[in-house]
Every structure is written in C-alpha cells, then in structure tokens.
Design a protein around this nucleic acid. Sequence first.
DNA 1: GCCGTTTTCGGCCCGACTGTTTTCAGTCG
Length: 583
Amino acid sequence: MENIDIARMFEDVAALLEIQGANPFRIRAYQNAARTIESHTTPLRKLVTEGAKLTDLPGVGKDIAGYITELVETGELGLFKELTEKVPPSLIELTRLPGVGAKKTKKLWEELGIETIDGLERAANAGEVADLEGFGAKSQQKILEGIAAHRRRQARFRISDADQYVEPLIAYMKEEKAVERIEVAGSYRRRRETVGDIDILAIASEPGQVMQRFTSYPDVSRVELAGDTKGTVVLRSGLQVDLRILPPQSYGAALQYFTGSKEHNVKLRKRAVARDLRVSEYGVFLTGGEEEAAAADPYAGEFVAGWEEGEVYEAVELAWMAPELREDRGEIEAAERGQLPDLITLDDIRGDLQMHSTWSDGKHSIEEMLDGCVERGYEYFAVTDHSKALAMTGGLDAAKLRDQWVEIEEIASRRPEIRVLRSMEVDILADGGLDLEDEMLAQLDVVLVSVHSKFDLPATKQTERILKAIQHPAVHILAHPTGRLINRRDPMEFDLDEVLQCAAECDVIVELNAHPERLDLRDTHLMRARELGLKVVISTDAHRVADLGLMRYGVDQARRAWLGRDDVVNTYPLEKLLTIFDK
DNA sequence: GCCGTTTTCGGCCCGACTGTTTTCAGTCG
C-alpha cells in the first residue's frame, strides 16, 4: 500500500460522498488529505509501522488517521465498503467525464439506472439523456463526445511534448498586434513532468481579436468554448489549451492565479482573507468586509496590487517564489520564515555524467559527444556505455572497455579543454551482482549501476537485488532508480525508501535522469533523498549530441524538488567532484 | 472531516461559461 494508493482511495471516497450529496466540506477534507498523502515523501506505511503521529500531517485528523492505519494494516477500508453499498463504485468513473459531475451522475443513476460509461453511452445514443430534467440535446451530445474523448484519451502529455505544441502556438499568438503580453501559466509553468492541459494568459485591449486569432489557430481541431475573456480549444494532438484574456493591471495577479497550483493558491488566499484582502485573477483588493459587492463586481474594493506577480506575494507579506515550488509543499511557510530555497539553475551545471557513444547504443562518437559538451561550456563529462549484459545495445566487455580507454586516452591528449571521465553504466544483474569485473570497476573514474532487465521481480527480491548492487564498494551512482517510463512503464516494485537509506549509508549518489521520458527519480523521491542527506546527479542519458540539451528537464525537476547547487554533484568543479568519487 | 496569535464551534477560495434556465445550477479550473 503506497501513498499513491492511499490517496486514490480517499479520492474515491470523496467522489462517492459527493454523489451522495454529503457535506461539501467533508468531501473537501478527503480531497485535501489525498493531496497531502500523494506528495508526502515518506511512505505512510512506514509511519504507521513506527507508530508515528499521522495527525501531524496537514489535513489529517483523528478519523482519517484511523482510515490510513486501517488501509495499511488490512489493505481495505470499511468506509469505502459502506459507501459502495449505497452507491455503485462504477459511478466514480462517470463523474470524471467532462461536463458530468456528481449531481448529474446521481441523476443519471437514479432516473435512468445508469451505472457505467457504456450504459451512459447507450442511453445517450437512444436519446434518453436529453429528456432528463436539467439535461438537453446539447448536454447529451457533449456527453457522447466526452465518452469518445475519454476512450481515446492518452495519458497526460509529457512536458517535452507539450513544449513542442506550446512554442509555435505562442509564436503564432504574438503575431496578433492586439496581444500586449502573453504567457503560459499552469502546470506547464510549474514544469511538472506531465501536463493535462495548457493555460495561456494574454493581456489585450481588444480581447475579441485575440480570441478570434486563438480559435483560428490552424492546429485547432475543435473549439470547446469561446467567450469574451475565456476560450478553450483542443489541438489535433488532443492537447487542450485554455486562453484567458485580461486587462494590463491584472497581468501579475492573473499570472499568479493561473500558474497555481490550486492548492498553493488556496493557501495564499486564506492568507489574504486574514488581511482583509481578496485575491483573484483580477488583482488584490481591500475587501472592507463586503463580500456581496465582490460577487457582483470582481473589481469591488480598493485595488492594491496586480500589475506584476511579485506584488501579489508582497501584498500578503511573502517573497515571490519560483513557480516550480508552488505545490503547497511547505513553500508558503518557508517564504514566511524567509527561508525559500536557493534553487539550482541550468547555468550551475558543469558536466554530464551519463551518456552513450557509438561504442554501445549511442549515435555519435565519443569525440562528437565531447564537442557537444564543450559547446555547452562543461568542464567534464563521463562516457557511460552499456555493459555486456545488454547485448542488444552492443554492451562492452572488459576487453572492449580497455579498447575504449585507449581511444579516450588519445582524445584526451588532443582535447585538454574538457576532462573525459572513464565510466560505464554497469548492469545490475538479477542477483544483484555487477556486470563487470571488480578489477575493471576499480579503474573507472566513476561507476554507474542500473537495472535494465527483470523489472518484474517480486518487490522483496527487487529490493534485495538493488541493495546488494549499491553496497558494492566500487559503485558511485545509482542511475534511473525506479526504471519507470512516463506513460509507458510503471516504476519497478521495490522499497525505494530502503534503497535511499542504504545509498545514504554507502555514499552512493542517486541519479535524476533528465530524459523527459524518465525523469527518474521524481520530485517527491528527490525531496526524500535530500531529507536523507543524499547527493543527486542530474544526467541526460544522451544517446546523441542533441540529447545533451535535455538537461533542462532534469534541472526543472530538481527545482521542483527544492534542490540547490550543493545538492547536485555535477554543479561541482572537477576537483571537488573527483574527491567524491575517490571513496 | 479538519482546524484554531479572536475560536473546541463555526467557519472552510473565487470566478467564468454553458445549457436549460425565467433567475440559476452544475461544472470546471
């Protein structure tokens, strides 16, 4: 029972309560708890075993703490069973269809006996939905479209894929003269590893022209809505894009508002309320306790701030903070204490410690990779071709590795402007052994180990396997520790926390693999690693020169994990780096 | 259901758009 499973269970409980028309604040309590749990860095099952006080977690009180314990100890939740005796659990999925919430789900179920998406589709096709009070022909059509979209919906878009859609769209929008400023907000600006949709914010004196331009974008497959200030389109790729248009004095407030996260904003607004302020996308206003006025006029009250984002934070007595931090993981409290982290930036990176060459499955030679690293201003890089167990990649055995060292020696003698580190991405074998002789390992400047096979071992075996590997005295770095591929392969089942603790004891560095398909470790894992005092290396795992540019995705992820320069070893100058590898 | 530099009770963030509405509910972010 991982944190994510516990969080899902509470989300489902919230959905079931909502369908039953329970107290909205009770519903929110479960949603809040789910959120806390999902992003908590320590596995709750450990806290339960250790008898820690779960009620110390924000949003977790006596009841929910009890439910967590029950879930961890029995794997089940009595409350969920009780709820599903009254409401079929398949209705939860219905509430997740666009345009269908709890109320409509309830109505569909009670009036038409609909319990599943298939059942809803049949009823809609038969025209039964349109006859229901509160529904109509358009709702029915929307539901059918929603079902179709739900079926073909791919998972969320990887951030690197979103980049490919967003950059040309923004360039296109900027050609419209009425656009005074334009910015992408939302999870894209927070640089999450995946995004569900894209939130764009534009400042314009002539909103109509801007909306017109937006909905006419050639890559738009359909326009979902197009009002005066708010529009939604779906691109051919299926990526949804929202546009909000606001006046100039609201630019900062709107950027703050639409960057989110939602949870961060909720907390910010509570702070505002405590100061008799109202924060909305239009600005920060002095309320004077007249809430009704605001409902009629979003500009009611004295305008205090809004032109720039920093003003909004200033109005609630906080320092501006990087979007990557805005997940309500303690950043507001840190800002309160004046202790916001000094985040790593791309400019801090001095080298790249995982890449492949034509010696194994890379597309470019060592020297071509060297040129790419020099171009990026690096001081050093490691050549980390695969070991022999990965036959399909042309992995190297001891003899070939020696040959490679000869080539490295020769290149290094001609190219003193950068240090080439002798390395290898050594496979962790099924029994936890390493795929290279000790005598060879000892001669490498830096040793990476990683799992590339038998991802489906039972969790305890998998954990033992990795623990054994990182306890080998020659090992410096555990590469892509969980093995996940975003949207393609789940992380391996093993006890990551135990591995991290062991790595801390053995002075093993954990990798943040910057490849946007991996981003492994993920942000919450990295936060945990930092708590344990571990060092991190951000590496691109480049297989061609262009891949060296993926470093930015790793840095984004590191920033989301609150990492600073000191936490990341490839920000260190060469000398300092080498002392770490000399263990 | 959670929470507390006013509080153990009474609050809990704010606004836009759509569709089916004759004045607003539901949904979404």
